[in-house]
Design a protein around this nucleic acid. Structure first.
Length: 257
DNA sequence: ATGGCTTCATAGTGAAGA
């Protein structure tokens, strides 16, 4: 079962890229972030024409998440329980008996901003929720744009990023907290080349210089991590004309059924 | 580099992203 995540930075603008990537990569599940549209505008027909089901939780202008899948998705949750949040950043669903939790973690702006405090509160609520989910679902995958580079290996120039959001010790501790509760960073299960990233700034040819960060992740429960065959970043869509600033990340799981 | 690009909302520029 091939499970992927992609921050598309507007599904309206990137629909063609998504369709092409579905056709070429053939994932069983694709979790999208930053679709940036209300539900009424979701291109359901176009997605269905590619052979995928879709569930989504959108809002005007910002944020918004969706799960595209070969088999139908059931048991939707569209918010972190017991956490007041107007922003559409979470979508949980079950596909083929696997619980999928799609996340668009707040960016945080800068360490001294109110948005950073919102990010920390959001992540605290997420932690509590995921602990519950882990007790309910043996086969659990938590994936999306985490807006956290877990390690200096995930940063093209760690020295230049000191003092910034996305790499702060506080954020990294929270990410480590997710690992400590039993979620595995599937990317690090495997030997990887150096300087593999999932996001590159639009400016200054950052992609072509590989000045990036690895902030998009696929975490798996123990049972899922044990059947994970590979976990990678697919840079191809980032090379297209008018790309998203993120590339898709993909993990392949060998399931019994 | 102080978002240097990109998208959205808007009809000038500003907000937001990472």
């Amino acid at each position: 079962m091939k499970i992927a995540s992609w921050n598309v930075n507007s599904l309206r603008v990137r629909l063609e890229h998504v369709q092409e990537w579905l056709a070429s990569a053939q994932p069983d599940v694709l979790a999208l972030q930053e679709i940036k549209m209300v539900d009424e505008q979701f291109p359901l027909t176009e997605i269905q024409e590619t052979g995928y089901h879709a569930v989504f939780s959108g809002q005007k202008t910002y944020n918004g998440v969706a799960i595209l899948s070969r088999e139908p998705a059931t048991d939707l949750i569209k918010a972190i329980p017991n956490f007041e949040d107007e922003q559409r950043r979470v979508l949980a669903a079950t596909v083929n008996g696997v619980r999928i939790i799609d996340l668009y973690v707040p960016n945080g702006s800068s360490l001294d901003s109110d948005k950073f405090q919102y990010k920390l509160q959001w992540l605290k609520a997420l932690h509590a929720w995921l602990q519950e989910e882990l007790t309910k679902y043996d086969k659990l995958v938590v994936l999306g744009d985490f807006n956290i580079a877990p390690d200096d290996r995930d940063v093209h120039d760690p020295a230049a990023w000191v003092g910034h959001n996305l790499v702060s010790p506080e954020e990294r501790n929270i990410f480590q907290g997710l690992i400590n509760m039993g979620l595995v960073d599937t990317f690090r299960q495997f030997e990887q080349e150096e300087a593999i990233f999932s996001w590159w700034d639009y400016r200054n040819g950052a992609f072509w210089r590989n000045n990036g960060l690895r902030i998009d992740h696929i975490l798996a429960s123990t049972a899922m991590s044990q059947c994970c065959q590979s976990s990678n970043v697919d840079k191809k869509p980032r090379k297209k004309k008018r790309p998203s600033d993120h590339a898709p990340v993909v993990a392949d799981f060998l399931l019994d059924s």
